[in-house]
């Protein structure tokens, strides 16, 4: 059976590899992918959105509708993991489960290192989020770094210590809240008489030009993305590391 699978897959691979002959060469500037849509993005994005990072402009504005659902996918992952794994604390359960010793996290070196690193990480995360218009970065990257700072806290101290500082209910609210901020900005544009996610509608409220309004709109939705991603990272870690009972992490 295994050998049969191997033979079939190898045959498929061979066919697809040989068919690669009519694909354009690697890094060919004249290939359709590089010559059809991409020049339009590079040439028009700055004028339309005042965002030098073209990837950010395309991600959060031209294809902002995709990115909204991308945020929803992250939120969805946290929601599913919680709904499948999370066990409601139940008295009966507590008796059945064997008592597991809590790790106190008394290691001074770890704690000291965490105290040093975590604030720097969080400031850096905010920088990455806010500077996404001008350099590589944005909501996803910033959110992941911010979420990682909480995971580091849970690793160096223990899970309970982190949960006491960042409650599960608030984490879940942040998950939904970030995505809601994104969709809400879109809906606000719709209410202002523009199409959904047409950030230019914000020009009237913010008192800036349309291109500048798009730039601010991008920042707003990136903040929403950042909140969701940060909270989802923390939520997934809480659930997966403790097996759903929120008692002890790794």
């Amino acid at each position: 059976m295994k050998r049969l699978t191997l033979i079939i897959l190898a045959a498929c691979a061979l066919i697809m590899l040989l068919a690669a002959s009519d694909l354009p060469d690697w890094a060919d500037p004249a290939s359709p992918a590089s010559s059809h849509l991409s020049p339009g993005f590079v040439e028009q994005a700055y004028e339309a959105t005042h965002t030098p990072n073209v990837v950010t402009a395309v991600l959060a504005d031209y294809r902002g509708y995709d990115t909204m659902f991308e945020t929803v996918v992250v939120f969805l992952a946290a929601l599913i993991i919680m709904i499948i794994l999370r066990r409601t604390p139940h008295r009966r359960f507590c008796k059945i489960l064997p008592h597991r010793p809590q790790r106190q996290g008394r290691d001074t070196v770890l704690k000291g290192a965490a105290q040093l690193i975590i604030p720097v990480m969080q400031v850096f995360a905010l920088y990455v989020l806010g500077h996404g218009h001008y350099s590589p970065g944005g909501g996803f990257q910033g959110g992941v770094i911010f979420g990682a700072s909480f995971i580091l806290l849970a690793l160096c101290y223990n899970l309970e210590f982190t949960i006491n500082r960042f409650r599960e209910r608030i984490v879940l609210l942040c998950c939904a809240g970030g995505a809601l901020l994104y969709a809400g900005v879109g809906a606000l544009c719709l209410a202002m008489g523009w199409n959904f996610l047409g950030y230019a509608a914000l020009a009237g409220i913010l008192g800036v030009s349309e291109a500048m309004a798009r730039s601010h709109g991008i920042l707003l939705v990136e903040v929403g993305v950042g909140i969701t991603v940060m909270a989802v990272m923390v939520s997934i870690y809480y659930d997966l590391a403790s097996g759903g009972d929120m008692r002890e992490g790794l």
């Binding site: 031209y62 902002g64 199409n195 959904f196 047409g198």
Partner: peptide, 13 residues
């Protein structure tokens, strides 16, 4: 047709 974010089709969604 409905243009998301008021972008013209081949570039926008």
């Amino acid at each position: 047709h409905y243009r998301m974010g008021d972008w013209l089709p081949p570039h926008g969604i």
